[in-house]
Design a protein around this nucleic acid. Sequence first.
DNA 1: ACAACTGTGTCAACGCTGTTGACTTCGGCG
DNA 2: CGCCGAAGTCAACAGCGTTGACACAGTTGT
Lengths: 237, 237
Amino acid sequence: MGEDPTSVAVTADGARPRLDRERILDAAQAIAATEGIGKLTMRRIGTELGADPTAVYRHFRSKDEMLVQLADRLFGIGPELDPTASWRDQLRAELRFALSRYRAHPDLAMLLAVQPDDTPSLQHIADRTLGLLMDRGLSTKDAGLFFQLIENHVVGTGLYYAMVEHADDPRLRDPEAMRRLYALLPATTFPNAVKASPDLFPDLDETFDLGTDCILDAIERRTQPHPSGSTTTGASS
Amino acid sequence: MGEDPTSVAVTADGARPRLDRERILDAAQAIAATEGIGKLTMRRIGTELGADPTAVYRHFRSKDEMLVQLADRLFGIGPELDPTASWRDQLRAELRFALSRYRAHPDLAMLLAVQPDDTPSLQHIADRTLGLLMDRGLSTKDAGLFFQLIENHVVGTGLYYAMVEHADDPRLRDPEAMRRLYALLPATTFPNAVKASPDLFPDLDETFDLGTDCILDAIERRTQPHPSGSTTTGASS
DNA sequence: ACAACTGTGTCAACGCTGTTGACTTCGGCG
DNA sequence: CGCCGAAGTCAACAGCGTTGACACAGTTGT
């Protein structure tokens, strides 16, 4: 009867391999991607995998624990940066990739907003970004400040993406509809909003790059006001 | 025995006046403020007001509708700006007040993240900020861009506040604990994070002001490309 | 003044959620 | 072979948003 007992765990003709954290996270990611994070329930994952609705609890202590793992997986690490590129271009690429994560997984911002945590993926990204800031010549204090600022910038824009994508009201998802809505506001009480209405709700990528440039400019001004080497950080590796 | 039938609706000796949207929002705000938005349920509001758990549905069609009203109330309008102050100080005050809303109501960012919408309060604030940008001389296109950037800045920092306040793990709420945690990371894989660990997780108000200055500097450079002796920095009240 | 109606509160119930405990089954190990 | 722990199943608990039927109040129309 037993033809191939070597394989890990196959009940019959390849039907229903056993569950493990990997397969569960696969299913969770698929559900979140196709139907939104609102439909991502523990019971749903179980049935999706052809198992009992509560089977997931044999592999994750709670839903929160699973969401943390899912967030870490979605965040990934990102491509290695080109070390020959300019400092500015490297940091720019790092930020662009960070935002691209939110575009690829609109639920990520919501996930992190509801379940903030600190995983190896985030730590890796933090380390790389901090390295870029300090190599440029920022003191550790300024690096900490600007790193937090950059994080707010990315999270803020990412959250905006997520909000727009998740809005129930389809008008909120359509910039053109929002512009029309603002154009029709009472001009006596909201004169400026009406006047600027054709240019409201601009492209979020353009806005993001504008914000990135604002920050990069500030860093450049702070690190080379006059080329007379005042490096406060003496011990650099 | 009926002494005062003029008053609106009092069942007996002042016990349990009738429900209305105002009183319901009061209770909802109180619950969210004291126990967090996670404990804010429709049934809880009803019992809190001494009524049936489902009584709220006589005044709000759904929980989402109630949350929108609650968000609008929490957002408020903000104080009038001092028109004699400099353009920079006015915009600075506007942004500071916007962030203060998130500090006063940490649930607000989560609320707007989960239930984005567009209410009169937000429109009023948008109009005022757009006015400041265009008075400075920005084109409507640039005003739209920078307005979106400012919104991301405020929402991003506000969301960070909310995340920190809502974290289940108390370590996430304590910057000092997070710094210690980063200091103990393996220095071989995360050298920069370890090195900068004493300066990570800086004061969020300081970070916010830094970001505001980055944006204001960019606006100034864009509206007066040729430097004609205007004090760009040092506007610290 | 009486009837009709409308708005508000109450109660029971539906379907869903996360989670737990007891039970059964299965796979690897001595 | 027998054992034991991990994995899957089943029933159940408490809670959620929401709905429908019912009861009572206040107002309105005649």
